[in-house]
Design a protein around this nucleic acid. Structure first.
Lengths: 258, 258
DNA sequence: GATTTTCGAGAGCAGTGCTCTCGCTAGAAG
DNA sequence: CTTCTAGCGAGAGCACTGCTCTCGAAAATC
């Protein structure tokens, strides 16, 4: 195969440019770790890499563009960390172990990189809208937990929890469900995660689990659990367990292994 | 009754001071609504109220102190809105209606006041630590949902969900639970919300519900649900229903009413 | 070797939080 | 009613921010 673009012989200039770009991002990431995203100063970053602020603009058109680069990097880092956590479980059919490993991996990454986490899941920087390029890296972490659920379902380890029609109106529950989480269903289909029918209630439950995990981590990092949760490590495991069971895992018949 | 302190005859100076203070806060709140907390400019607020920036420092020692005032105001506003939503349900034994009303009230407030919401539940402003005075107003909204759960439990409307020992170790589940959520248990007791024993699993479930509600609202406001959840109104109701049932409400025997 | 592209430095603009000083004025004290 | 003082608003100023523009030097290209 012809190496068309990626490993094409870079000119010295290009190599230097890439290297300096990486240097800037690295310096920015360090500063981000010890101050919030809103506090990130382009001038300070410039000083760190031994440049004057205007020189940085040769590499990033604006502070927002630097933030976007950090965003992509952080999403990828989180995604990779979560994938690693899941992959570390040897028995691929031990969905409980995979679930715990992945969720703990997410939380561990967040605690280790609070600045990045705040950038990703905190309040958005005012006036800043993440461009489309950030979508794909953002999806990685979701895919990990989605795969556990879909594979678990395919393996018959899930008893899809009962849906309920206790909505405000007595209408047909499934149509309402399909409409509400239509995007997620389409997403799961487009990624080829499931062939055949997608149980809507499972989609809803997975969305809830996803939201709860990040909601909990955000609460922990942002100080909202102080006073209520005494042992955050233990609480998170408790949470992971409840979410796992609410998904329909570990139901009747699938005794756990110890 | 003697009016001891609150309506004590204020001097003209004090009245003027309070009025201007309120004016500043009001102006700040308006600016906050259309830009994030990090973007809130004390100088801009000063301009809005027809002052020069240094004059504002006669009323607030720093920008952070202004933010704290806004924080307290916002917490109180959210708390009041939620209390109103709950109180609007005439039948106090209709816990489902109260649950939906309260949760919807929280979300409605958040959507109507995104700036305030970001201030309360977004990433904290770097270097800013909310002082103790903000704790009490912050608690109001939690108390509303806590009351629904405790009253529901006292009324026998809840079948406390089964705990599970599927933790990492096979130790005694209840001791671990008690340790993890000890703060919450103590809180519930200190507020006199429950006399007698507090079912630990219910405490855990309530904490999870609380976290999930705010996690979902944060995700919605911060744009993380775009692409997955197509109808956010409907999804939130779906969520409220699942949380309600996971708490043990609407279990066997307590058929809902329509 | 001449030319064009690329890049870093520096000055500068408008904005920020915050401090300090200086008058004015309204309320308190006599 | 006069004197005095405490409180307040204005202004200048400092160090910082994001960002723009110009200029000179160096490197790649022709």
């Amino acid at each position: 195969m012809q190496d068309i673009s990626p490993p094409r012989a870079q000119t010295a200039r290009e190599r230097a440019r890439d290297q300096i770009t990486a240097e800037i991002v690295a310096a920015a990431r360090i500063r981000l770790a010890e101050s919030g995203p809103a506090d990130l100063s382009l001038r300070a970053v410039a000083r760190d890499v031994g440049m004057v602020s205007s020189a940085v603009y040769r590499y990033f058109a604006s502070r927002d563009e630097l933030l976007t680069a950090l965003l992509v990097l952080a999403y990828d880092d989180l995604g990779a960390a979560t994938e690693r956590a899941d992959a570390a479980v040897a028995d691929r059919d031990d969905f409980q172990a995979r679930w715990f490993a992945s969720l703990r991996g997410i939380r561990r990454w967040a605690l280790a990189n609070p600045g990045d986490y705040a950038l990703l899941y905190g309040s958005p920087v005012p006036g800043y809208a993440a461009p489309q390029t950030t979508v794909e890296p953002a999806v990685r972490v979701i895919l990990v937990i989605l795969r556990i659920v879909t594979e678990g379902h395919a393996a018959g380890a899930i008893v899809v929890p009962a849906s309920s029609d206790v909505g405000s109106d007595g209408g047909p529950g499934d149509a309402a469900l399909a409409h509400a989480v239509g995007g997620a269903v389409q997403f799961v289909r487009s990624r080829g995660l499931v062939d055949g029918e997608v149980p809507l209630e499972l989609v809803v439950r997975t969305l809830i689990a996803w939201t709860t995990v990040f909601g909990t981590i955000s609460f922990e990092l942002f100080g909202h659990l102080v006073g209520s949760v005494t042992d955050t490590d233990a609480y998170f495991d408790l949470l992971a367990d409840r979410l796992f069971r609410d998904l329909g895992f570990g139901g009747p018949g699938s005794r756990d292994h110890d």
